[in-house]
């Protein structure tokens, strides 16, 4: 994933602006040597594996892994008819939307208040950004511990309000737990971007609105929110991609896709079917679908980043 700023430059790059310095060094073997390390790694660890995945997605291995048959798009057709896969798709959509909504909503509210305290903003920022430094697996471990059915703090308190918490047995509770853990980890990131966006709004705009008679709440809704909408959109894509792919560690640590397949999202299914189920063709086909999804998200983001807010 790339940030707002990188994407801006990327867009400029793709449009051909500023591709090269006006003055540059003469052609020589040197530039090839300079790009060689990155190109080599890209070829070996990106392009080759990705094309392998595409190729494998068109094969079916026999039961013993001895031979394989080229079957065109049969793997994809199988997926299309596989209720488990379709369920996983829907589950991923729900999971991603909830993670994005929860973490972005929390971050937006906190940033909205934090930018009001001019002096304390950095103090609160310091206290709010560290979950970013916590590994996904670790975040998972923290939440597993807090919600451990026999020992955890939260199930203990939840019992008083009549909730019997056991995410090892209850699929919805398991889903809620991974959503909370995933959103918690991402709040820091969203908060930083929202805070930066709000702080870049010229003070005069806010003051003009205040003179027009808009109170803090009204200003937030009618002035600040529209002005930071590009950031919201950017974060939406980033959070979707995060929820799709980077939550793997959390799910792996917290539920391992269970109970049953209640928390098996697409990326976890790729891993499960490939490494555990050893269905290479099917797993590869799922990989290819995910690649298409990422590319689509990237393209959508590109198109939107062009729209800038006019102050």
């Amino acid at each position: 994933m790339v940030s707002f700023y990188t994407r801006h430059s990327l867009h400029a790059a793709l449009m051909g602006h500023h591709m090269l310095k006006r003055v540059h060094f003469p052609s020589s073997p040197l530039p090839y040597m300079l790009v060689a390390p990155q190109l080599a790694i890209t070829l070996v660890f990106f392009i080759w594996p990705a094309s392998q995945a595409m190729y494998q997605s068109l094969l079916i291995e026999d039961a013993f892994g001895l031979g394989s048959e080229f079957v065109w798009f049969e793997n994809f057709e199988v997926l299309w008819q596989d209720q488990h896969y379709l369920d996983a798709f829907l589950r991923t959509a729900v999971f991603s939307v909830l993670v994005a909504a929860l973490s972005m909503g929390t971050a937006l509210i906190l940033a909205g208040f934090a930018q009001r305290v001019v002096k304390g903003a950095m103090f609160y920022r310091t206290l709010l950004i560290w979950p970013y430094a916590v590994a996904p697996v670790l975040a998972g471990a923290l939440w597993v511990f807090m919600f451990n059915p026999t020992l955890g703090i939260f199930p203990y308190f939840l019992e008083f309000v009549g909730v019997d918490w056991n995410h090892y047995l209850n699929g919805n509770q398991a889903m809620a737990l991974v959503i909370m853990a995933a959103a918690w980890k991402q709040v820091a990131y969203n908060f930083l971007f929202y805070l930066a966006a709000m702080q870049s709004i010229p003070n005069s705009v806010i003051e003009a609105a205040a003179i027009d008679g808009a109170g803090p709440g009204r200003r937030f809704v009618t002035i600040i929110l529209p002005l930071i909408s590009p950031t919201t959109f950017f974060l939406l894509v980033i959070n979707m991609v995060y929820a799709f792919f980077e939550t793997f560690g959390i799910i792996h640590a917290v539920t391992q896709g269970g109970p049953g397949s209640a928390t098996t999202i697409l990326v976890y299914k790729v891993f499960n079917d490939g490494f555990v189920g050893l269905d290479l063709g099917g797993s590869a086909a799922q990989s290819v679908i995910l690649m298409v999804l990422v590319v689509a998200m990237t393209v959508v983001q590109f198109r939107y980043v062009e729209r800038k807010v006019e102050y």
């Binding site: 790339v2 990106f46 995945a53 494998q56 980077e246 790729v270 290479l280 990237t298």
Partner: peptide, 17 residues
Amino acid sequence: MIFITLMLPVEVRILPT
């Protein structure tokens, strides 16, 4: 060739990698 790697998180090409 470098640009294309932007689009492929390690998770989606994990097996072949």
